[in-house]
Simulated assay, not measured.
Amino acid sequence: MRLNPVFLLSATDVAHFPSEAKTYGAPEVAFLGRSNVGKSSLINSLLGSQEAKVSSTPGRTRAINFFALHEGAGDKMKVRPTLIFADLPGYGYAKISKSISAEWPSFIEPYLAERETLALCICLVDTNIPPQENDTQLITYFKQTQRPYLVVGTKSDRLSNNQLAKSIAALRKAHEVEEILPVSAKTDAGTKMLWAKMMEVAE
């Protein structure tokens, strides 16, 4: 099923989050990960468009960007979105000023903790680098708060099958999770499976 994305808004404050009236209470899928993990590229691959801005400078996303995904197009576009994508700022990039990092919790933590329509958190981890402590911290947070989450390994096309298997095993052990879904924004590998997981939430 083809879903057409419509950009809703960028939020840098809890007051900016789209209201349920605006989204018809559609379930939200949040994308989170370290800066430069390939988050925007994956979102664009999933949407088949360039909705999410891809920057060569890590940490450019400063807001939560919301996209409504509708069935149909033009006059036949369904009013209620099937899903809402929320593209969250990246974390863990040393060059980001402390003032910006200090601003993030003011709207990100309430979003993750209190957003009633948030149905699934996609935790992105890079399969090309060793497991990162701040990824573990985020995953532990979801376990503790009992937020539904899925760990997705990005940039899987850069590794051989043997390398990828070793990387996934190391990431699973470090993050203490049973499943990590490897994907590639470049080749679309794994994106059908990811769509299936997200559509389960929509239904």
Rank of each mutant, 00 (worst) to 15 (best):
V14Q: 15
T23Y: 09
K22I: 05
L42R: 00
S19G: 09
S41A: 15
Y24V: 02
A15I: 08
A52V: 04
L42K: 03
G25K: 10
V37R: 02
F17L: 09
E28N: 04
E51W: 07
S19Q: 08
T61P: 09
G25D: 00
H16L: 11
S40Y: 12
G33Y: 01
S55D: 15
V37T: 08
G48N: 11
N36H: 06
K53V: 15
P27G: 01
G38L: 02
Q50N: 14
G59T: 07
K22R: 15
L32R: 01
G25Q: 03
K22M: 14
A15K: 15
S41H: 11
G48D: 03
R60W: 11
S56Y: 10
K39H: 09
P58A: 12
E20F: 07
N36W: 00
S49C: 08
R60C: 14
T57Y: 03
P18R: 10
L46P: 06
E20Q: 13
A52S: 15
P58F: 02
V37F: 04
R60F: 11
F31D: 14
F31E: 11
L42E: 06
P27Y: 01
E20P: 08
A26S: 13
N65R: 03
R62W: 08
A15W: 00
I43P: 04
I64A: 13
A52N: 05
T61L: 06
A30I: 02
V54K: 01
D13Y: 01
K22H: 05
A26D: 04
L42S: 01
G33R: 07
V54C: 02
A30F: 02
N44Y: 10
N36E: 06
E20S: 15
S41T: 12
S45A: 15
H16Y: 06
N65K: 00
T23P: 01
P27T: 05
S40W: 08
L46Q: 07
A21Y: 01
G48H: 13
T23R: 10
K53W: 11
R34K: 13
S49A: 15
V14C: 14
P18L: 10
E51P: 02
A63H: 10
D13E: 14
S19W: 02
L46D: 02
P18F: 13
N44R: 08
K22P: 00
I43L: 14
S35T: 12
V29A: 11
P18V: 05
L46M: 13
S40G: 11
L46A: 02
S55Y: 04
S35P: 00
N44C: 07
H16E: 12
F17Q: 09
A63G: 01
S19N: 03
A30T: 09
S41E: 12
